[in-house]
Design a protein around this nucleic acid. Sequence first.
DNA 1: CGATTTTGACCTGCGC
DNA 2: GCGCAGGTCAAAATCG
Length: 335
Amino acid sequence: MDNSSWVDTSLDLNINPLRVIKSDAPVDAERFGMPRKMKPAFMDFQTKPSAKEESSLSFEVDFIFYIYFQTGALEEELSRVSEENRKLTEMLTLMCENYNALRNQLMDCMSKNGEKELRGPSKKRKSASSNNNDNNIAMNGNSESSSSDEELSKKPREEVIKAKISRAYVRTEAGDTSLIVKDGYQWRKYGQKVTRDNPSPRAYFKCSFAPSCPVKKKVQRSIDDQSVLVATYEGEHNHPHPSMEATSGSSRGLTLGSVPCSASLASSGPTITLDLTKSKSSNDAKSSKPKTDAPEVRQFLVEQMASSLTKDPNFTAALAAAISGRMLQQNHTQW
DNA sequence: CGATTTTGACCTGCGC
DNA sequence: GCGCAGGTCAAAATCG
């Protein structure tokens, strides 16, 4: 996906290096662009002091003015950086909107394909490639909220309940080999299997409230990125979220409204993880969509992307190079 | 001692 | 019908 045509990602880092005022330079506020009425009173003295006093006073005045000027310069710089920040935020918002539009198109295509398969007589077992396709959709969010082929191939002995299937992607520590996805619910592991399409074992969990709660969870490491756990939830909890009953904060993930959410930056791009398992009060199709349009989510995405950028050593190195380059350039032209 | 995890055996559906 | 693969069961082991 080529985003370069959407937004101008070049950063106009208009950095003014801090100037050092020579002590013998005339104190002229307007020379530095300071408004006449802001000119400090100490600049208006007319009486000529003694030579010793003049030397000392000149230094003090210059020092005070230096501080005054630097404060103004910093404020100016701050406003400029704020403006840059605002522009970047707008760019990120635009990117999020474009992403949402594309995702909606993808959802439309997937739902149309699902309808086709529903009509068709194919009883073909879910192939390994379909699993890979799921993995390739890094930010599928609510895709499984609609019926998927996996669901359609369910055994007939299972009731025709429209088991909601959602998928969550969770980044783990590099050395973490456990298949534990902390989503606030309590799970009981009942099996583990090595599947053909992925060398990593797949763990099977049932909700601890079983058999009253029919929710199952499968956890397997992503074949693309071993540090990413793919958790597939089947069904809906028929009991409140444990963290809702207990005091808030027991859940590890960041909670946005009723949508537990976490995000991370994978090597291939940002990974947004939405835990779409919900309480039964929200089974209508409308509310089963992730609230990516909500301002909180948008703000969260922006903050996550910004923090990911600042944590990226390549980005900080490039930023430092750009700033130092600009400063050197200005040093040469002004000093 | 009860709850949870591990793990080999078993079940089921599908393709050939 | 057989083999394969995914999913589940259940006894043993482990943990708190």
